[in-house]
Amino acid sequence: MTSRPEYLPERLALLSGAQAADFLSAGLLEGREDVPSIALNKVAEPLSGDEARWLLHRVRDLVDDALAMFGGGRPTVADAWLAPRLHDTLRLTRAEAADKGLWAYLALGVAPDYVVWRHAPGPNPDGSPGSVARDRFVGTLDKQTFARLWWAAELFRDGVDYRPAEVACGNQEMFNSALRLDIIDHRPTAQAFISLIESGTVGTGREVNALLAAANAAAATLMYDVIAPDVERDGGAVREWIAAAESAIPPPRHRLPEGPAEERVPEESVRKLAAHFGELFREGRVRGRTSRENE
C-alpha cells in the first residue's frame, strides 16, 4: 500500500496540474508505490506568509486520526467524520478553496496514502490491481478526495452548525450528486435536501437521485431565491473565522467543531422548500410507478 510521505515540510504548498501529472504514476494509482516526496517538494510552490493555517502537520494529524479510527472499516464511513473537521482545520476563503493546486498538493504531498485507502476500487475481475481514478488526486472540486469533503462542509453547513454537512456526507448519493448541481449554492435548497433525508422522505440512492433530478429540473423555471429567501451575509464572520485559525486548537474528535459564525438559514425558507421538493418527489414517484405499470 502507498504509505505516508517520508518527507513532510513545515508548510502547505501549491502544485500545478502539469507538475502533479509527473507524479501520477500507474504504480501510485494502483497503490503499489509511494510519492517521491523530496522531488515533489522541490517543484511545489510553498504558500507564502507565516499564517498558522498553512501548517502542514495540522492536516496530516487529522488524516492520521481518520485512518486510525476508520482504517479497519469501510472507507466511505470516514467522509462524514472528516468533512467538517477538514473544513475547520483548513480555514480557507472560497477563492482559495477554488484553487486546484492546493488540493493536488494535499493529495500528493500530504496524504497520498489516504487517497489510495479511501478510493482504491479493489482488484479487477481478472485479478489485476484496480487503479484509483486520477481525478481523486487532481480532479474537479466534486471529485478530488479532499476538495469534495471541504466543499461539502462549506455548502451544507448551516452557519456554525456542521451537522447538516455530516448528514450530507453520510449519504453517498447526496454527497456525490449534489456537489455537481448549481442549485445547492442556494443555502435553503441545500438545507431542504438535508431535512428530507432526516425526515426519512428520501434515503436510498435511487430516491435521492430522483429528488435531486426533480428539484434541478424545476429550478429551470422557478426562482427558489424568491420563494424561499436566504439572509444576506457580509463575509465578516468568515474573515473572523479565518483570522482565528492563528489560535485555533485541533477540532474535537468525538463531537462536531463549530463553523464560521454566519447567520443561520431561515427556517421558514427551509420548511417551504422541503414541502415543495417533497411534493415534486412524490409526484415523480407516482408518475414513475404508473409508467412502469403501463409498460
Binding site: 472560497r94 477563492a95 477554488a98 462549506e154 455548502l155 448549481d182 449554492d185 442556494h186 431565491d225 429567501p229
Partner: peptide, 8 residues
Amino acid sequence: GATNVRTV
C-alpha cells in the same frame, strides 16, 4: 461557478 457563490 468556480466558487459556488450565489448572491441575490
